[in-house]
Design a binder for these strands. Structure first.
Length: 808
RNA sequence: GGGCGCAUAGCUCAGCGGGAGAGCGCCCGCUUCACACGCGGGAGGUCCCUGGUUCGAUCCCAGGUGCGCCCACCA
């Protein structure tokens, strides 16, 4: 038999078996408690990355624990249609054929996307299986499937009727490449090296000028005012007068507004409401017009005929040249600032005024805030809970419309008179004037609008389904920090509004896995590590173990060492089980028949581990859980217990064999949530297995071996003493002697021997001295908590007693 | 500009009011019949700095320094 455990093959076999035997299935069952993790649906175009892998490792460990605890576990899988991302992928494919989406037209384009998805979409679910995620794959949902579309439209109509969805003409983020609006959350900001030019705007009466700094001369034609801070003495007497906008010669007022930062540039701001969010606000506050100079394609529009069709860079040059000729340029300096890009295509974002649909947050968010404040929903760690509340409190109205071709089309129809009718199904006539000439809005919804319904739309909502009754509200969410505002908070407010109850209780915000060198994992930097490669090399169990071990801090570097540790754990377990199965396998049925102290000890130790690991997992301390698992397996189970009983196993001692199998069984169970495959593989080789480990019961501590637990601490001390005193410990030969020597005092027989006693005496003397020092400190005795002082007294007494026994 | 987090052994990281830890790496010794991907032993630390709280601080508090991340409309 191969001494090396090879996960390849074994893992795939169990993954198939578990799924084929229906062990992941969740069906409504009123007799059982439920546990629901509506797992974040990955982009349908996506591939498994380290974040997904970590998320799955966390969620799956908890789902497996809960399943073993007897819960009816629903681990919900599915995909997100991922509006921009998917459209992007298909447009790229079209581009390679020399076509654009406009060439196809909307309907054909949509058909093309579906076709593309049939061919390339959904590979990620195969990858989810490969990591061993126990999702109920029968229940796979897609945010554009038939039932889901109904849920989305129902929600839109519901919120519209409540008056919370409205249309408004405001400045929004516009991606000139995708030709769509974007929410603030879909942007990335990068540093950009540009130029800041200070340009003179002449006063209309010819008495001088105001100098103004701008990074975007091309927007000058759309200037409608100059603004200064009301307390800025430099400009106080200019307020109310007029200046002439260079290049276009328009006279505009000088106004005062507190939003102007007097520290920046010259302290005077050109107000361009059509092309800047701050200017837009100022413009609205002062009732200024909102001309635009830039078209939706990012080029100059017809506002100034001689600039029409130019790029902004070309327009910058034309306008600067004009100013230069007239001596209007005061200075031009290098300027580094941060600019907004579309997170998908990295085009520079153009703030544009455009009619869009909005979701008002003021009332919608209140019940969600209450749920968070009352801690009916808890983010972990606590710092993220506060952040989630702050974010929701400050959430601005949500721009929910997009000018894409791939997504949920708005259930909005317009008649020739501009009346709007909103309905779940296509209306026959305008709700206002009865016109039957209705045109459906071409806009689609922000992808996150449909994502926000995930925990209940997947259960059949808005129908009153059995699934919905059984599995709503759920329990768990695992996600990354940046998703809190995009998704988690939105699921909470949608759940509270539409179903009257938050959709889950706990949200685990997990660490960000960085590349080993500390940089971000990214394809373009070449720093990405493909989890599938790691799985192929180390196995899914090892990868899961490694990821859980890495999950404790906010940002963590990917560590092959942690994965390697997991691989060693699986290998060690595999080998230990070979020992036990070879000597005891197939002959006895496992039962607790502990006879020796080492047997009582390992059972006690496992009792403790069962409670500890359950507690760690349920409190989301994954790194601590895997630490405990590693050490109980290596130090306690293998290095001490297995070595100690090896002689008896070789002697075919039936009681020893029975207890060994019982102990192994408990060890496998406690390891299963983290390393399910190897534990199931070994489990299946134990005698008389009636069910799979995955659906077996989480062990209950027997609670019978507390004395042995204490005894074994002494055994380990004793081993250390032997080592220190130069006695060579060959476990097979000497183990029982050690156990006997140390255990005897527990049983009241006195103990210790030569070299061991010498070292033990030294250690105890040190302990006694330390305790005496503390107790001699009057301030400690007076001020420390009584239980601490009492504890020290107890320790001192015990050490003295042991010291006496040894010195006798 | 706001928020969050991190700084502990050569590396990656646990621990977080009374003894400084793990894995990997390194050194020494072991082909002991489950495992040499192993076993046993060992070296290696101003627990970032300065103050404060405390009988006692790696741990709590304040400030500093250095990193990282998230958010933000500096024209």
């Amino acid at each position: 038999m191969d001494p090396l455990y090879r996960p390849q093959g074994v893992e795939e076999r169990w993954q198939r078996t578990w799924e084929e035997e229906g062990l992941y299935s969740a069906d409504p069952d009123p007799t059982r408690r439920t546990f629901v993790d509506a797992h974040p649906p990955p982009n349908v175009t996506g591939e498994l990355h380290m974040g997904h892998a970590l998320q799955l490792a966390l969620g799956d460990a908890l789902c497996r624990l809960k399943r073993m605890q007897g819960f009816n576990v629903l681990f919900q899988p599915g995909y997100d249609h991922a509006g921009i991302s998917t459209q992007n992928a298909v447009e790229k494919q079209l581009a390679s054929e020399g076509k654009t989406r406009e060439d196809l037209g909307r309907e054909a384009f949509e058909a093309r996307v579906w076709e593309w998805l049939r061919e390339y979409g959904g590979v990620i679910m195969t990858q989810f299986r490969r990591i061993g995620a126990s999702l109920d794959y029968r229940r796979e949902r897609f945010t554009m499937d038939e039932g889901y579309v109904r849920a989305v439209l129902h929600t839109f109509v519901h919120l519209y009727r409540k008056g919370w969805i409205y249309r408004a003409n405001r400045i929004i983020n516009w991606c000139p490449f995708h030709r769509t609006s974007l929410s603030d959350l879909e942007l990335v900001h990068v540093e950009s090296d540009d130029a800041l030019t200070t340009i003179r705007y002449p006063l209309a009466d010819g008495s001088g000028h105001v100098a103004i700094a701008t990074a975007r001369p091309a927007t000058i034609p759309a200037d409608v005012a100059v603004a200064v801070h009301p307390d800025d003495d430099r400009y106080r007497d200019l307020v109310g007068r007029e200046v002439v906008v260079p290049f276009v010669g328009r006279r505009v007022p000088v106004i005062a507004d507190e939003r102007v930062d007097p520290e920046f540039g010259t302290g005077a701001l050109k107000v361009t409401p059509g092309h800047d969010p701050l200017d837009f606000e100022i413009g609205r506050a002062h009732g200024l017009p909102e001309p635009t100079a830039i078209a939706p394609d990012g080029r100059m529009n017809e506002l100034v005929p001689e600039l029409e069709g130019l790029t902004q860079e070309e327009a910058d040059e034309r306008i600067l040249a004009w100013c230069r000729e007239r001596g209007f340029i005061e200075r031009r300096e290098a300027y580094r600032h941060s600019i907004a890009l579309c997170e998908r295509c990295e085009s520079r974002i153009e703030p544009l005024i455009s009619p869009q649909w909005w979701c008002a947050m003021d009332e919608l968010k209140q019940p969600a805030l209450e749920a968070l404040r009352a801690r009916r929903v808890r983010y972990h760690p606590e710092s993220q809970h506060r952040f989630a509340i702050d974010s929701l409190e400050n959430a601005p109205d949500w721009c929910i419309s997009r000018q894409l071709w791939w997504g949920h089309q708005l259930p909005v129809w317009e008649c020739p008179d501009g009346h709007v009718t909103v309905a779940e199904t296509e209306p026959d006539a305008c709700a206002h004037c009865g016109s039957s000439e209705l045109t459906r809005s071409e806009d689609v919804l922000d992808t996150w609008f449909s994502s926000a319904l995930w925990p209940f739309a997947t259960l059949g909502w808005p129908e009153e389904t059995d699934d919905l009754r059984a599995f709503y509200p759920g329990d768990l969410q695992t996600t990354a920090r940046e998703i809190i505002r995009l998704w988690e908070n939105r699921m909470i407010f949608m759940g509270c509004e539409l179903l009257g109850e938050a959709p889950f209780a706990d949200v685990i915000i997990h660490s960000t896995v960085l590349a080993p060198d500390g940089r971000r994992m990214s394809k373009s930097l070449g720093t990405g590590i493909d989890p599938l490669d790691v799985i192929a090399e180390y196995g899914a169990d090892a990868t899961r173990y490694g990821l859980l071990k890495m999950s404790s801090t906010q940002d963590v570097r990917f560590s092959y060492g942690a994965v390697e540790e997991g691989r060693k754990l699986a290998n060690k377990l595999w080998n230990a089980s070979r020992l036990l199965l070879r000597t005891a396998g197939g002959e006895v049925s496992p039962a607790l028949r502990p006879r020796s102290v080492e047997e009582r000890w390992i059972l006690a130790r496992l009792d403790r581990t069962i409670a500890e690991v359950r507690d760690h997992l349920e409190s989301f301390r994954f790194a601590q859980a895997v630490n405990a698992l590693y050490h109980v397996t290596f130090d306690d189970f293998c290095d001490w217990y297995a070595e100690a009983i090896k002689p008896r196993l070789h002697e075919r001692d039936a009681d020893a064999a029975a207890t060994a199998l019982a102990a192994l069984e408990r060890l496998l169970a406690v390891l299963h949530p983290v390393i399910p495959h190897v534990t199931e593989e070994i489990w299946s080789q134990l005698p008389d297995r009636e069910s799979r480990l995955i659906v077996s019961r989480w062990p209950t501590p027997t609670g019978d071996f507390a004395d042995a637990d204490r005894a074994l601490e002494r055994v380990q001390d004793a081993a250390a003493i032997y080592r220190r005193s130069g006695v060579r410990v060959t476990l097979e030969r000497d183990e029982r002697r050690i156990f006997e020597a140390v255990v005897r005092p527990v049983d009241g027989d006195g103990g210790g021997d030569g070299p061991a006693a010498a070292a033990e005496i030294e250690r105890l003397r040190n302990e006694v001295a330390r305790a005496e020092r503390m107790l001699a400190n009057e301030r400690f005795v007076e001020n420390a908590p009584p239980e601490v002082v009492a504890g020290e007294r107890e320790k001192l007494a015990r050490y003295r007693r042991e010291l006496d026994a040894l010195q006798r």
